[in-house]
């Protein structure tokens, strides 16, 4: 081919047929395209409201259920259990919502429209980043409803408006970060059911083998070790510090750092396996 010598791969742009072609999308383009994709995901959510079930019913149900089941036994009364439970359920619902993000992404990718997305001159991350961005709304709903249910049951956190808001925001950030794991799962799994199955296998140990429901002091020592390194425990502890005490403790820093590491690892993995998919 005669053309290869004239067009070097490291050129940023080329003029072809009076068009200026760019070699790769700019950051600005990537953001615009991700926002357009988020718009698509929002439209889709609005037209399929059943996608909100897990973030509306579950927070109401789980918060009330666990408060009444475990409250008396673990903390003496429901009132005394709430400061322990609410930050835990916050993290749990965010994690569950993440799983749905991965499953829906897998379902979405099987649709014909993804063939078109692949053929368009858009950033490879945009079709993934868009729905993830839209799902922030779902985590927001889940976190808000969990807190409201807690308030309704008589939860009066001492963290004040700033502490509670920070805990709420941390929950959403954690949900968004961890959903990249499930997005990656979505790009490598064969079907939406597989994502759901694998997701459950990850979810259950992560939420129950943690400090979500009880103080790990009461657990066997080998389990305590796992609980201590479980990222969910980190997020939960950070949320407790923020919401109950208004304390921006080291745990908060570790939780944010941990979540950022998850994004830094899994976002590129997800984009890579997505780009490879036929």
């Amino acid at each position: 081919m005669t053309t290869q010598s004239t067009l070097l791969p490291d050129r940023e742009t080329a003029e072809v047929l009076d068009r200026t072609l760019v070699a790769r999308p700019s950051l600005r383009d990537t953001v615009d395209q991700s926002i357009a994709m988020a718009w698509r995901a929002m439209k889709k959510m609005r037209r399929n409201p059943e996608q909100f079930f897990d973030v509306t019913i579950q927070p109401l149900l789980f918060t009330a259920m666990f408060a009444f089941i475990f409250g008396g036994g673990l903390a003496g009364s429901v009132q005394d259990y709430l400061p322990w439970l609410i930050p835990g359920v916050l993290a749990q619902t965010a994690l569950t919502a993440c799983m749905a993000t991965g499953t829906q992404m897998r379902e979405d990718m099987d649709k014909g429209v993804f063939d078109r997305f692949k053929s368009l001159p858009i950033a490879r991350i945009a079709p993934l980043a868009g729905p993830m961005l839209a799902d922030v709304l779902r985590y927001g709903i889940a976190a808000t409803l969990t807190l409201l249910t807690g308030f309704l049951l008589g939860y009066r956190p001492d963290g004040g408006v700033i502490g509670v808001t920070a805990g709420w925001a941390l929950t959403i950030f954690a949900g968004w970060s961890l959903s990249w794991i499930f997005a990656w799962l979505g790009t490598v799994a064969r079907s939406a059911q597989a994502v759901q199955g694998i997701g459950m296998m990850i979810m259950f140990p992560l939420t129950f083998l943690s400090n979500v429901f009880t103080d790990p002091e009461t657990m066997p020592e080998w389990l305590q070790k796992f609980v201590a390194v479980n990222p969910v425990s980190q997020v939960v502890t950070a949320c407790r510090d923020l919401i109950n005490d208004g304390n921006f403790s080291a745990h908060v820093g570790w939780a944010v750092l941990g979540c950022s590491v998850v994004v830094a690892v899994f976002a590129p993995l997800a984009v890579r396996s997505y780009s490879r998919k036929i």
Binding site: T3, V16, R19, A23, R40, K44, G112, V113, P121, I122
Partner: peptide, 25 residues
């Protein structure tokens, strides 16, 4: 004149693809 292997992003700016199965949302 644009190399397909080396400049996939440029190729996508030049080609409109209509597939065998309607790829719309």
């Amino acid at each position: 004149g644009v190399d397909v292997r080396r400049n996939p992003h440029m190729i996508r700016q030049l080609v409109g693809v209509t597939g065998q199965y309607a790829s719309v949302d």
